[in-house]
């Protein structure tokens, strides 16, 4: 999919530029865009390192495990059929907590592990309701501090002002996603 999007963007830009006589502007935009990507990454680099460093402390100190234990009742609500002491339940809560903390590097392997555990319980090429629910939660992932966006907002009066709105939107999104998954599951059962 990304191949078509990228190719489409490039080709449509060039054709439009030719038609509107903006070839020169587009050529310099290409150089400018490539250079901007590097300055953008450099400006993000510090914040990403800072964030990953702080999160590593949270992980080593056991703060992440503690939060995972607090999250257990929520998983019981969303995954009533998964035994709370199983490996699947463990991986699910750890993945959710890692996502909340924005630890993408840790969240993905945990998520894949949870998916494999759920699939072992399921034993079918058709996804179980639990697998669908878990995937939907991950696509609507709730992040406490959207650190990359905050880093991109350098130069704003208050780069952090978006945090509370992001929480509200994330929660509404999560409710919509989980609600839809539950409703679709109920409809399937009929």
């Amino acid at each position: 999919m990304i191949n078509y999007i990228w190719g489409g963007l490039m080709l449509i830009s060039l054709v439009t530029a030719f038609a509107t006589g903006r070839l020169e502007a587009v050529a310099s935009a290409a150089m400018d865009g490539a250079a901007q990507a590097v300055t953008m990454m450099l400006s993000l680099l510090g914040v990403i390192c800072l964030w990953s460093g702080i999160m590593e402390i949270a992980r080593e100190s056991g703060a992440v495990d503690m939060l995972a234990r607090l999250m257990r009742p929520v998983t019981r609500l969303l995954f009533p059929k998964i035994p709370p002491k199983s490996e699947a339940a463990d991986a699910i809560v750890m993945n959710i907590v890692a996502n909340i903390f924005g630890m993408a590097n840790a969240a993905t392997p945990l998520g894949l592990k949870a998916m494999k555990e759920l699939s072992r319980i399921n034993k079918s090429p058709v996804a179980s309701h639990e697998m669908c629910m878990f995937a939907v939660i991950n696509t609507a992932s709730f992040q406490l501090i959207p650190s990359t966006v905050i880093a991109l907002r350098q130069g704003a009066q208050n780069p952090f002002e978006i945090i509370v709105p992001v929480w509200i939107v994330s929660i509404l999104t999560l409710i919509a996603g989980c609600g839809a998954a539950k409703i679709f599951a109920l409809r399937d059962a009929l």
Partner: peptide
């Protein structure tokens, strides 16, 4: 996310997952 999550297990039918996930995105 859906590609890597369902890619790692042998699932052929993801049922309503894409519908629910895109609905959530629309809400966002």
């Amino acid at each position: 996310t859906l590609a890597i999550y369902f890619g790692c297990v042998n699932v052929k039918d993801t049922r309503y997952t894409v519908k629910a996930a895109l609905l959530a995105d629309l809400v966002a």
